[in-house]
Amino acid sequence: MMKIMTCTTSKSLVRNVFLLLGFLLVMFNKSYSQQEPQYTQYMYNIGSFNPAYVGTVENMDITGLYRAQWIDIEGAPRTIRFGVNYPFENEKMGLGFNVQSDQLGPTTNTFVDISYSYQINVSSNTKLSFGIDVGGSFLNVDFSKGSFENPGEPILGREQINEFYPTVGAGLFLYQDKWYLGVSAPNFLPGGLYNDDVAQVLDDNLQFNFIGGYVFDLSEKLKFKPAFLANFISGAPVTANLSANFLINDVLTAGASYRFDNAISGLVGFQISNSMFAGYSYDYNTNPIGQYNNGSHEIILKFYVGRGSKTKKDKIENLKGKPKQIDSPRFF
């Protein structure tokens, strides 16, 4: 009877959490924030857009990412990201740190934020993490980098703009060892914080990100993980990404991704050691802009601090002549 009551309570808690989230979606539908940069390897980069993820990792990890979009188009987006996820020893809390620079034409937007997460057990093997991040964006617009002929816009009367605006975001992350579901919003602050000049450069509605994935064990040496990422921005079409990756021998990752009405992508990754992962993706545009560029490139490096250190179990296996080579990654 106690097990039934516990299961019912857990399901009720999860339902109430997502009902609350739906309420927030309605409440903040008219507010404004920055539009997040686009990632193809989002499944390895969750901490960049969901603060609830930062405490769910098994060990501290450090991520570096570079994305060059629409090669051969002058002024096309370029994104650089550095992030840290740090789980506390109590396995309930975590801290994260992000620095992200997004360049587009004459505009450079640098985001800096600190994340905090706290997780609870909703069942014996299911955890729900709550996260919040606080930071800000340094906006620089340098019109000397190009030719802009539009005298009707008062902003063009200034050659350079340097502004700062604060950001406050939040997220939820529900997961087990084999699957996860998450939702986040990078900024809830209203658009009234922008001045008249900046509003003409950043006129982006509130964005919500939904992510999920599942890991299938096809065999002892082969895992399959389908995943999705959907971005909702008020007043704009939904951006949906579907991906399918295979993990071979816990070392090699290979797969493909499709961004609806936008691009198809190839992904490859390699677990270089217990403490280092490298990934690469190439996007080919399926929309009309594909005629004018040579695709997009994205490189990611992940370092796992403390991972692969010898445990008591490892030492016993070594004595038996079975050294542990690569830790089995969680795959998200």
Rank of each mutant, 00 (worst) to 15 (best):
291 Q>Y: 15
106 P>Q: 05
24 L>E: 07
35 Q>D: 09
5 M>Y: 07
331 F>R: 02
183 V>R: 05
137 S>G: 12
69 Q>G: 01
264 I>P: 04
266 G>R: 05
320 K>T: 10
109 N>K: 15
198 V>F: 03
60 M>K: 10
31 S>M: 03
330 R>Y: 03
280 Y>G: 11
27 M>E: 05
23 F>W: 09
217 D>N: 14
306 G>T: 02
28 F>I: 00
46 I>F: 10
38 Q>I: 14
189 L>K: 01
239 T>V: 14
81 R>Q: 11
190 P>W: 12
235 G>V: 04
227 A>R: 01
310 K>D: 12
196 D>G: 10
18 F>P: 02
98 N>T: 11
288 P>A: 09
287 N>P: 05
316 I>A: 14
2 M>G: 06
127 K>W: 07
245 N>P: 01
28 F>P: 00
207 Q>F: 10
223 K>T: 12
292 Y>H: 15
284 Y>A: 12
68 A>R: 15
283 D>I: 04
332 F>Q: 02
279 G>M: 14
60 M>C: 13
15 R>S: 08
76 A>I: 03
268 V>M: 14
272 I>T: 06
326 I>A: 02
279 G>L: 15
62 I>C: 14
109 N>H: 10
189 L>Y: 06
139 L>Q: 07
208 F>C: 06
254 A>Y: 02
209 N>D: 15
69 Q>P: 03
89 E>V: 07
275 S>K: 13
184 S>Y: 10
28 F>D: 03
277 F>H: 06
80 I>E: 15
309 S>G: 04
226 P>A: 01
186 P>I: 01
213 G>Y: 12
38 Q>V: 13
313 K>E: 14
25 L>Y: 03
238 V>K: 11
147 S>F: 13
1 M>C: 07
145 K>Q: 15
105 G>T: 02
163 E>P: 00
112 V>F: 11
249 N>D: 06
242 L>D: 00
57 V>H: 05
167 T>V: 07
71 I>K: 14
291 Q>R: 14
14 V>K: 01
179 W>H: 12
200 Q>Y: 02
26 V>S: 07
254 A>P: 01
135 G>D: 01
103 Q>R: 13
72 D>H: 11
97 F>D: 02
291 Q>M: 11
44 Y>G: 14
249 N>F: 06
308 G>M: 13
254 A>M: 08
213 G>I: 08
17 V>F: 00
281 S>W: 01
312 K>S: 14
325 Q>I: 15
88 F>P: 00
150 N>R: 08
133 D>K: 08
134 V>C: 07
217 D>V: 13
204 D>H: 14
6 T>H: 07
302 K>C: 01
277 F>W: 07
152 G>Q: 09
126 T>R: 09
102 D>G: 00
295 G>D: 07
204 D>W: 10
96 G>S: 06
122 V>M: 09
36 E>W: 04
166 P>N: 02
78 R>Y: 04
210 F>E: 06
154 P>S: 11
161 I>V: 15
201 V>G: 03
64 G>S: 12
269 G>N: 04
165 Y>H: 05
